[in-house]
Design a protein around this nucleic acid. Structure first.
Lengths: 247, 247
DNA sequence: ACCTGAACACCGTTCAAGT
DNA sequence: ACCTGAACACCGTTCAAGT
């Protein structure tokens, strides 16, 4: 079960090794189990040694997010340079992000909630590289500037909400519940107070995660296509005056 | 700025007072600042006294989520019994959840990521009460069982992704960045490596949160309406055999 | 029934010291 | 340049003791 790097140190420490060990720990034992001292233990090293490679606990968390997000680049299905049409481009990207999330369900809340380094970098596509890949890809596929930015926002909202719920449904087996119950959570339901829930229990318990993802993605792409067809960007725009601030 | 209850204890402790003090602390100082000892300090009490009212730190976090989610019931715009059509019902609910989220942007990640008590209870509508309200409301408005459950899933995914990003964009002013820069985050951008981002900087920085919410909600309702019109629930269903497990 | 004092295990982080 | 030992402040949680 995802042994990864942890378990014994070979050679010297390095940033990548520290981050991978931390991610392994989260994957196995969950976020609350992640402490500097435990990561250090795995590496047969003292906790203070980690400070050479990461900027404290906060820096470690950022590094884990970095590792998860960068993993997307190793996915052969995801195309950094769009080859087909834009629907193909975004579909491959969406499934790639989903695979990454499902690979690390316990780390995904971190990807979702760590404050990004700039307000316009949106989880789960939270790196300059992926923002550039996304918008430049769409620009090359004849999206207007407005449409590309609109698509980036809609795409990230969709992925974030959807995947956070899907990974969450995986994760929450680790609860203080009774261990010998079926994990549906309907066993102790008060059917008097919640009659509709009781009636819909089999439907609610059913899990069609992948089909729902496919359906919702399809509708999202339709939405992006529709918006792309309209004249200007997000509704009536009042302040598109392109005054570049900064340097 | 949202003084709330904290600052001095009048009378005896109680669960509500403990939770409200904790929520105030998160609203003001952020999640990392939340410790049992600090909550106790605010109440002029020792940390151990809290254990009478909450089940440790984990219980405190769950209680905060409870408080935020329950706040929705006090929103006069939100109708627990649907009065108009289903679009009105869901629109009021959506804006109500959004108001709640924007009231507590720093607590919203908690609402989003705390493991729910059952896998089919989906943030941010994460209480039996709200699940019941949602599905029974739609059932009364002539939604089929399948359509009501489908709508619940689509609605929660949408709200979660959208509001987590909107509240996140508010929160992340508390970063280790230089304090005298404009907070756009474009100042130190490497325009060579990220030319499209640089070109789209003004568009990316622009914030149309409310219009985007309105747009996306509109499309979501269309999607629900479309799905409602189709024959069965989520695509071709293979296992709708209603075998009620549990007691 | 409710709150406290003392204690414990564990945590992140520092700093001077080692190699 | 990299790692460590010792120390510190702070944390959650326990338990017996107070009222």
């Amino acid at each position: 079960m995802a042994e990864g790097v942890a378990g014994g140190r070979r050679g010297k420490l390095n940033r990548r090794l520290v981050l991978q060990t931390a991610l392994d720990l989260v994957d196995k034992a969950g976020l609350p189990a992640l402490t500097l001292r435990r990561v250090a233990d795995q590496l047969h090293v003292e906790a203070m040694s980690l400070y050479t490679w990461i900027d404290g606990r906060e820096g470690l968390l950022d590094g884990i997010v970095e590792l998860v997000v960068d993993q997307l680049e190793d996915d052969p299905e995801v195309l950094v340079e769009p080859a087909g049409d834009w629907r193909d481009f975004l579909t491959r990207l969406a499934y790639g992000v989903r695979r990454t999330a499902l690979d690390h369900p316990k780390a995904f809340p971190l990807v979702a909630t760590r404050p990004p380094s700039a307000p316009w970098i949106r989880p789960p596509l939270r790196s300059l590289r992926w923002v550039e890949t996304f918008v430049s890809g769409l620009r090359r596929l004849d999206f207007s500037e407005d449409a590309a930015v609109y698509a980036y926002r809609a795409f990230t909202s969709f992925l974030l909400g959807y995947l956070l719920l899907e990974t969450g449904a995986i994760t929450e087996a680790a609860l203080p519940g009774l261990p010998d119950q079926p994990p549906d959570g309907f066993a102790d339901l008060d059917a008097e107070r919640y009659p509709t829930i009781a009636a819909l229990a089999p439907l609610l318990a059913d899990n069609h995660a992948e089909e729902e993802f496919t359906d919702a993605l399809h509708d999202l792409l339709d939405r992006i296509e529709r918006q792309r067809g309209t004249a200007d960007g997000v509704r009536q725009v009042d302040s598109w005056t392109p005054d570049l601030d900064g340097s």
